[in-house]
């Protein structure tokens, strides 16, 4: 059982083939690690009885009560509505960057796959939106078990080739996903923060709950370079020859400023935000989702 824990480490996962297996291993590992099963409390928990009215499904009639009182009562459960969750996965070129073994895109895939697996396990519906500078593919949410295969397949085949344009993509997504639900944005957010903010606001306006999982490479957070380096910009950005030591402090300031700005914008719009770097264990991302999900369910009560 303990062995499952290792599958939370992205490096270990990268050696395993098949996104579905990876997702399963992540979830199993995570479940093993927690004391309380995430299955509990969703859709099967009894809440109260109410009198039967014509049109109710007779499958929910509590026959034991009928036997005692000769009246028809219906069993009512805690959650009875499905969650519609859409995972928006950034497939731009910048996501392909990897300082270590795992690229941001790869890491994002693990997160997305395990989330999809988890959501389906919980009997909720999950959909997928792949984007770079535009929405590449949108798979509407579905709660069928077979739906996972489709999602994983799409995820693993996408390639980071184009520029990012998160703002416009989010606007598009807001138009496309009409049914109110949860949007999980997995991206490095390398775009204009104001555009991102505008997209998120649009989604909020559509009453979506939003979780932003900000994936960055560890090198992008720490800037560990020492010697003379020629930085070749991805996504058509310019090239720069520089002494990293001379730049480090200012770079880190700029980076912090950016993440701070994004985080502040998210929080002010009641968007859950988590900064995750690619060396982190995957349960961080999942816990963020679960916490968000829990607050969502409490909020709806």
């Amino acid at each position: 059982m303990e062995d499952y824990l290792k599958y939370l480490d992205p490096k270990t996962l990268s050696k395993i083939k098949g996104l579905d297996l990876k997702a399963r291993l992540i979830i199993e590992g995570m479940v093993t690690g927690s004391h309380k099963s995430p299955y509990h409390g969703f859709s099967i928990e009894f809440a109260e009885h109410r009198e039967y009215v014509p049109g109710d499904d007779i499958r929910h009639v509590d026959w034991k009560v009928f036997g005692k009182s000769d009246r028809y009562y219906i069993k009512q459960y805690e959650e009875e509505t499905n969650l519609n969750c859409t995972i928006a996965l950034d497939c731009s070129e910048s996501m392909e960057y990897a300082h270590g073994e795992v690229s941001k895109l790869e890491y994002a895939r693990y997160v997305a796959a395990s989330l999809a697996f988890l959501i389906l396990q919980q009997q909720d519906a999950v959909g997928l939106a792949l984007f770079d500078n535009e929405l590449q593919k949108v798979i509407p949410p579905s709660g069928h078990g077979s739906h996972l295969k489709l999602l994983l397949n799409e995820m693993s085949t996408c390639k980071g080739e184009k520029k990012t344009s998160i703002g416009s993509v989010l606007h598009n997504l807001a138009e496309r996903v009409t049914k109110r639900g949860m949007i999980i944005l997995i991206s490095d957010l390398f775009d204009d923060p104001r555009a991102i903010l505008s997209g998120l606001r649009h989604l909020r306006h559509r009453k979506h709950d939003i979780v932003v999982l900000h994936i960055v490479d560890e090198a992008e957070m720490t800037f560990p370079f020492e010697k003379m380096t020629k930085f070749v910009g991805l996504e058509d950005q310019p090239t720069l020859m520089a002494n990293p030591r001379a730049l480090r402090q200012t770079y880190l300031e700029e980076f912090k400023k950016f993440t701070h700005e994004v985080k502040k914008a998210c929080l002010s719009n009641r968007v859950d935000y988590e900064l995750i770097h690619t060396n982190q264990r995957l349960d961080v991302a999942l816990s963020t989702y679960l916490a968000s999900r829990a607050s969502l369910s409490q909020g709806s009560r």
């Binding site: 070129e93 910048s94 996501m95 392909e96 960057y97 941001k104 490095d188 390398f190 960055v216 490479d217 992008e220 370079f225 010697k227 003379m228 380096t229 020629k230 930085f231 070749v232 910009g233 991805l234 996504e235 950005q237 310019p238 720069l240 020859m241 520089a242 002494n243 001379a246 730049l247 402090q249 200012t250 770079y251 300031e253 700029e254 980076f255 950016f258």
Partner: peptide, 26 residues
Amino acid sequence: RRRYRNVPWAAMHFILAAYKRTNRRV
């Protein structure tokens, strides 16, 4: 200056900003 290594870099935006800020001082 001739001895350098190439690094593909995503967060170029920040480097450029940093470079712009520090260039004169450096």
